[in-house]
Amino acid sequence: MKSDQQRLKALLSTTQRTAEDEAWLQSYLQNTDAAELRELSQELFEQHLEQHQPLPAVTTARMWEHIRERTEPANAPVRRNSNIYWWAAAAAAVLAITAYPLLTRQHKKPAAMAHIIQPAGNKAVLTLADGSKVTLSDTGNQVIKTGNLAIEQHEGELQYRSKQVDPTAFNVLETPRGGVFQVTLPDGTHVWLNAASSLKYPVTFTDKRMVTLNGQAYFEIAPDARHPFFVQVADMEVQVLGTSFDVMAYNDEQQIHTTLVSGAVRVLQHNNSTLLQPGQQSRLDPATGNISVLAANVDQVLAWRNGKFELENTDLPAFLRQLARWYDIDIRINASATAVAAKKFGGQIGRDMNLQDVMKILELYDIQCRLENRTLTVVSVQ
């Protein structure tokens, strides 16, 4: 007679189940603990990976949902799943959560093979008003003094302390590809700067608080009704009315996205102007000057700040641009341009994985890649 573990393993490995099997399986999954599910899921993945096959869709879906329910906090955002890409999203999600140690163990390359490319960390360069540059590292703790200005670095964040500072003096905080950083501005506004971005700001604010952004940043504005806050992005301006919001304005993206989380912002470009409400996103086409407004998926927009790659309904070219900025790599496409453009994803994966393990997840979507030095080549897409 089979043990519960043996029966569970047999039932999860097939989609051919009777009504009695389904009833037993549902009861078992509802009453067992997450540790046992994790152990079994790792064992199943090990077998299927050895056979170069993903687990069946129903298997990954059922296991992932029950593991998530037992290990995530009650207020954690629910993962959205597209019917079209459900099996791949579920497989990628369970692989990332339960089989990550297994992947790193099974597919560890010899020392002579490709160097492991790690995810981004806290690193940036601060350019002071006199033109001097200070390199900021992940673990740095220091006080940068220049005149009456004191800038404190606590690991991945800067904080300004100033007295009677020249209001015409500016600093520039720049993150490279593969780097992120935070800064608390002189007025108390907190900014999260994504990879390959820059923020120019005065070392003290006067009547009009204005900063200039290139790339992507999330802002939590310190309220001050008498002194409005503005974010300049190319020839677009975001007028802030005490709020938190995200601006994505990379040069390699076709549109500038402004997403409002709370409060209110006004997006202005020449004679065009639109007022956003919480949960809305404006999209500016710099080529035409047109501004459109639509409902935003805030969880998806802020996934980068929360340590995730949000892949729900994301196309492959957009994901590759994210990978290039996050891992500081170059992208080359040798696959069919039509297939690359049509490929979309579902689910969500952590940004703390090394690049080689992300490539394993791409394989689940039938995307074959080759990594040479710091160039990722997309070989084929099915």
Rank of each mutant, 00 (worst) to 15 (best):
N313E: 12
T314L: 14
V298H: 11
I333N: 00
L302E: 07
K108Y: 08
Q26G: 06
A19N: 07
S41N: 04
A93S: 07
V94N: 11
G289D: 12
G156L: 00
L40T: 05
L185S: 07
G156S: 11
L268Y: 09
T135C: 09
Q164N: 15
R177E: 14
L29G: 09
R177K: 15
N373P: 05
N83S: 12
N373L: 08
L103N: 09
A74K: 08
R80F: 03
N354F: 04
E157P: 03
E363G: 11
Q106I: 05
N81G: 14
R305C: 15
I117M: 01
Y160A: 09
L260W: 12
T189C: 01
E152C: 14
A99Y: 06
A129V: 05
S27W: 07
P223E: 11
R370I: 09
Q382H: 11
D352I: 08
D299C: 02
L260Y: 12
N334A: 05
R7D: 15
H52V: 00
S273C: 06
V238R: 02
M359Y: 09
G140C: 02
G188Y: 03
V378M: 01
N354T: 04
A150Q: 15
A34W: 07
K208R: 15
L302A: 03
E237P: 01
L173V: 05
T314Q: 07
P186D: 01
L173F: 10
D207H: 07
F205C: 14
A76F: 07
S27L: 12
E157T: 09
I329K: 05
Q277F: 13
R105P: 06
D352Y: 13
R79C: 08
H52N: 13
T135A: 10
E65M: 10
A114C: 04
D33F: 04
A61N: 12
E237V: 07
L185R: 00
R226N: 14
S137I: 04
E237Y: 13
